[in-house]
Design a protein around this nucleic acid. Structure first.
Length: 281
DNA sequence: GTTATTTGACCTGG
DNA sequence: CCAGGTCAAATAAC
């Protein structure tokens, strides 16, 4: 389509150019043409980049399946495969990819929080210097929408219970959000031209994983809490009452300010804001 | 029957 | 080599 646009521009160039000259005004066509060429250039670069990264992953995969396994290990694997029909080197699982991105968001919380997205647990692990299991979650829309958001939940303290949730990547899915139709009034008269609507499309672009509400633990997280606490029922109801009220107010304010900043600034602002909530609260 | 969780094996970066 | 991240079969939940 960009190519077609370029052809159309080239075709009409002479005519428009003459018209503009007659009117004595400056033509914007050269600028537009450059723009289209830049777009085409970006497409080309992107495709090159994608192709080259595919090559890299294929190469790495081939290398890993053929050379990184020592002869000694191969022997032991083959031995167990005789009895249990586990994977051999040839039918060993493919596409294994280890996370290499830096965390995009980290949050400590006295309770397990519901961030509005639907997560699927894919593993848990006991880590070296931790007393509790670390749970691994990925977005439930990984397969149907290709969303690569992930999070880890690690309990870091028993009494009072404290959890560290670390987020990796960003949601690209269209998750169903709770309270997805909140319309906020402007902060000040100077900001009165900005109407903020927190509909579902906005939330999809949010980098902050705490977009609207809140604080109702997921099924799995609830089970963990009930296992952990003697008076789980009382704790749940009182915490939910308290935090639903406080955090709705606080997070609304946070979002109103953050929405008037650029996306990078807004993430930074919300990080600072949520930290200050921790400090105060 | 479909979807989510559990859990032991597998894989890899450091 | 190994700690930590991921896979996928078995199992549970719905």
């Amino acid at each position: 389509m960009a190519n077609q646009l370029l052809e159309v521009l080239a075709h009409d160039k002479s005519i428009t150019h003459l018209q503009k000259e007659e009117e004595g005004s400056k033509s914007v066509l050269p600028f537009v043409e450059d723009l289209v060429r830049n777009v085409l250039c970006s497409f080309t670069n992107t495709l090159l980049l994608l192709n080259s990264s595919n090559d890299v992953s294929i190469t790495l995969r081939d290398v890993s399946s053929s050379t990184t396994t020592s002869p000694k290990k191969l022997e032991s694997v083959d031995e167990t495969c005789k009895n249990r029909s586990i994977l051999t080197t040839e039918n060993r699982r493919r596409g294994y990819k280890r996370k290499s991105i830096a965390p995009s968001w980290e949050k400590n919380s006295s309770i397990l929080i519901e961030d509005g997205y639907v997560w699927r647990k894919y593993g848990q692990k006991m880590t070296l210097n931790a007393k509790y299991l670390r749970s691994y979650y990925r977005c439930t829309h990984k397969n149907d929408q290709g969303c690569h958001a992930m999070k880890q939940v690690q309990r870091i303290q028993d009494v009072p219970p404290l959890y560290r949730t670390t987020y990796y990547g960003h949601h690209t899915c269209k998750s169903r959000m709770i309270n997805s139709e909140i319309v906020l009034e402007p902060l000040s008269p100077s900001a009165s031209s900005t109407l903020l609507s927190f509909n579902s499309s906005f939330h999809c672009k949010q980098e902050n994983p705490f977009p609207s509400s809140l604080l109702a633990p997921t099924k799995h997280e609830l089970v963990e809490m009930i296992h952990d606490e003697h008076s789980a029922q009382n704790q749940l109801s009182s915490l939910e009452d308290l935090l639903l009220h406080d955090c709705e107010v606080d997070c609304d304010y946070s979002r109103r300010v953050a929405n008037m900043l650029s996306s990078a600034e807004s993430v930074e602002f919300e990080n600072v804001f949520m930290s200050s909530l921790d400090y105060v609260g």
